[in-house]
Design a protein around this nucleic acid. Sequence first.
DNA 1: CGAGGGTTTGAAGTGCATCAAATAGTGTGG
DNA 2: CCACACTATTTGATGCACTTCAAACCCTCG
Lengths: 251, 251
Amino acid sequence: MIIVNYNATFKYMTVTTLRKIDLFKNCSEAFFQKTEEQASVQKQSKGKMLFLHEDEAQNFYVIRSGWVKLFRETLDGTQAVVDILTQDHIFGETAIFQNNLYPYSAEVVEPSEIINLPLSILKTEIKDNSKFAYDMLGSMARYRRQQDREIEHRDIQNAPQRIGCFLLRLTTQQEEGSIVIHLPYDKMLLASRLGMQPETFSRALKKLQNETGIEVKGATVKMDTLDQLVRYSCAACSSEFPCKDLGNAAE
Amino acid sequence: MIIVNYNATFKYMTVTTLRKIDLFKNCSEAFFQKTEEQASVQKQSKGKMLFLHEDEAQNFYVIRSGWVKLFRETLDGTQAVVDILTQDHIFGETAIFQNNLYPYSAEVVEPSEIINLPLSILKTEIKDNSKFAYDMLGSMARYRRQQDREIEHRDIQNAPQRIGCFLLRLTTQQEEGSIVIHLPYDKMLLASRLGMQPETFSRALKKLQNETGIEVKGATVKMDTLDQLVRYSCAACSSEFPCKDLGNAAE
DNA sequence: CGAGGGTTTGAAGTGCATCAAATAGTGTGG
DNA sequence: CCACACTATTTGATGCACTTCAAACCCTCG
């Protein structure tokens, strides 16, 4: 009896989570009902591989909490990070358009709650609900824009600037007084996210301190104002400063 | 009278061109009729700017022939190439999802024929025709995949390998005997497309010759077999060799 | 407390960028 | 058809940013 109730709660929470996600705002009741019936939610710990690049895809995923790394690797094991996602983001969904093969591997990098849903539900909703298809196109377009920016950054920003830019995108919209940022995951991962070595990250962060007067202690970054950081990082970027609106696959 | 006939021919050709493009295969007759009425085709020469980053967007574009560069630039004029497109590819269409602002600038880099179409036609078709919306999602997913690969390449391939990889993607599927490739546009542009300086491109191409035995003369590249090139470039990539199926915005 | 990873620091090497200049190629007007 | 002007491409020399390898330090968690 306890188990049944627990599952019921879980499933209820799943739909609640999905309803809060902007991408699903125009989804049909049929969609939500099917997700309620077929979702499974799992608590995953660091290191768990959810699927591998080129795996046959049955499901897509929604992150309820935690962090997940998407990446690909070459035969010799060198790995390239595609993205690192958190709460309310979806992944694995593009397999629908890729012959049902995942275009990257997915690994949990912080303790996470992951919602697991059949791709078929999503596919049906896209085909039957043109509003949702439209929203999904918008989401893809934003993601594409973000990837373009990523390529640009790696072309024209140096390591300290890339870190500064990343920090700026972590700040919440209107900060007042002293600004405090917590790095969302460990520095090794951050380095790979930004396309550099951990050693380079460490040195670049130190340089960023000297150049902009931010204070770094462990995973905490403090500063009085964003101005310095903006002047330092955004000079080497084609976007104007409050550049957070570029969005992501789940928005 | 002559002018009228000429325009009629032009418009007829426009629709013919669009019908051949895979992305539009499921478009409605209403769509094709509207494009016939509202399309304008222009011959553009090298250097022509079609629109600027952040411009208010009214139209999207289809390339009938030639080459177009999409790029963004920082205040100091440094530019980052987003993509370089040719025949049957569309661009500017994502402005629909970006508050009607173009997310990049577009410049003609070789003499080109460009078809000019109102975004409203496309938007209507997406909303009314779920098959087309679905195809468009597929196209976006493939583009996204391609961008992911681009980031990966810049991370883990060096300059000569990136050139080799690019050459491999230029070869047509089943080559027999001696293989000849013509570089599609000038080397400066190619360099920026691959994220390197012209000087680096020149040296890297020479290195690629020494390492793989390809013969380069001007814009022509000759080789007996792809094997050498595959071994040299694809080692530093997460995709298996015939990796051309990754597609593009127009496919 | 000790083991094992994350992080920092140091030293050296490498690849690409940059600056400068020579050379090749292309289109122009005479 | 040639010479000039201009641009693309190549070559050389040098510098810098990031990587790599190695070792120390630090943290946290059993």
